[in-house]
Write a protein that binds this DNA or RNA. Structure first.
Lengths: 120, 120
DNA sequence: TAGAAAACTAACCAAAAGGATAGTACTAAC
DNA sequence: GTTAGTACTATCCTTTTGGTTAGTTTTCTA
C-alpha cells in the first residue's frame, strides 16, 4: 500500500516549519516529556514526580512544572483541607493531544536505536 | 469512532520513555529540524543551507551537519571533479523515516499555537 | 591582480540550562 | 522536643550551547 505524499512547497513548508519549531520549543527539553509521562502515569505530587524522574533537581522540576502549566498540559490543584497542604499536578484534558507526538517520537526513537547500533 | 488506547503499564512506559528520549536527543535541538527541512527542500550546499536557515552561524551549522551525518539522516558527498570542490549534503533514504515525526510535531504545534492564543 | 565566493575551522565570549547544597514553613509521628 | 516528610525557593557554580569575528584554501571573475 503506497502512501500518497503531497509535495512540499516552500510555502507549506514554512508553515509546517514554524509549527514544528513551536512544538519542539514546548516539548523538546531534556526533562519535559519525562515529567509529562510520569504525570500521565499517575504520579501527581512533587516529591513523587521527583522520585520518578531520576536525576532531576527540585529547582528544575519546579521550573518545568510551571512551564507545563502555562502550556495547559497540566493543572496545579491545591488541596487546602489536607492537614499539611497537598499540591497535585494533574494531566489536563488537553494533554491527551500530545499522545500522537509521544507515539511518533517513541516509535522513531526505537527504530533509530536499532538502525544506529546495526551501523557500527 | 473510539480509538482503543492500550493501558500504559510501567514497563511499556519505561521502554517508550527511553525511545522518546533518544528521539528528542537526536531531533530536539534548536536547529536540527530546520536544517533537515532545508535539505529535504533541496538546499544541499553549505552556504545555501546557511542562507535558508536564518540566524545560524557557520560554526553551529558545521557541527549540526556532522551530527546529522552520524545519525545517518544525511550523506556528505564531495564532488572532486568540480573546479572548486563542491560539497553536497543530501538526504538519505533513511531520512524519510522522520517524516511522521515532523508531521506529528507540526500538527500538534499548530493546534497548540491556536490553543494558547485562545487562552489569553 | 584584486576581489569574491565556497566551505569550512579556530578562538573567544555570552547566555542559557542545569546541578549541588542549603534553607523555609508546616505538620505529623516517635 | 527531635526527627522526618512535603513542597518548595534561593544561591551559587559548572556545563552546554550558541553567537561573533576572523582566518584559511582554492578557484573563478572583472
Amino acid at each position: 500500500m503506497e502512501e500518497i505524499i503531497e509535495p512540499m512547497t516552500e510555502e507549506r513548508c514554512t508553515k509546517s516549519l514554524s509549527s514544528t519549531e513551536d512544538a519542539i520549543y514546548v516539548l523538546g527539553g531534556k526533562w519535559t516529556l519525562r515529567i509529562m509521562i510520569a504525570i500521565l502515569n499517575g504520579h501527581t505530587r512533587f516529591n513523587d514526580i521527583q522520585r520518578r524522574v531520576l536525576g532531576i533537581s527540585a529547582r528544575v522540576l519546579s521550573a518545568e512544572l510551571k512551564k507545563l502549566e502555562l502550556n495547559l498540559l497540566i493543572e496545579r490543584n491545591v488541596i487546602v483541607d489536607a492537614k499539611p497542604v497537598i499540591v497535585e499536578y494533574n494531566q489536563s484534558e488537553y494533554s491527551k493531544s500530545i499522545r500522537p507526538v509521544i507515539q511518533a517520537l517513541s516509535e522513531w526513537g526505537l527504530t533509530h536505536k536499532i538502525k544506529i547500533s546495526n551501523s557500527h
